[in-house]
């Protein structure tokens, strides 16, 4: 999926994460800030990158402010931000396709 415009999903409340995504220049740039960075930083980063890969996003600038979100929450927020950024959330969310 191609990131066409800036989009955001999620909140800064506890147990959630705010994901902001913008068009990139050919690679994934991830800026991650987390309240549990020392404990789970690597796991969070891996989850985000995996989700992007699954959605076939190869070029994007991503800013994630994590407030202790579970993996499933992170995935949902990243997916939602990606869909919003390419207007897929209007009609054609690829249920069962790229989203598993």
């Amino acid at each position: 999926m191609e990131i066409k415009k800036p989009a955001a999903a999620g909140t800064l409340e506890s147990s959630d994460a705010q994901v902001m995504i913008e068009p990139g220049d050919g690679k994934i740039e991830l800026s991650l800030q987390s309240s549990v960075m020392n404990q789970y930083g690597r796991q969070i980063r891996a989850t985000i990158l995996e989700t992007l890969e699954r959605l076939d996003v190869t070029s994007a600038k991503l800013t994630v402010v994590d407030k202790g979100a579970l993996d499933c929450t992170l995935k949902a927020r990243v997916e939602c931000a990606v869909f919003r950024s390419c207007d897929a959330s209007e009609a054609n969310i690829p249920w069962g396709g790229a989203v598993r």
Partner: peptide, 10 residues
Amino acid sequence: LNEVVSHLLE
């Protein structure tokens, strides 16, 4: 504050 900032950023 988190709620308010989230709302404004959104």
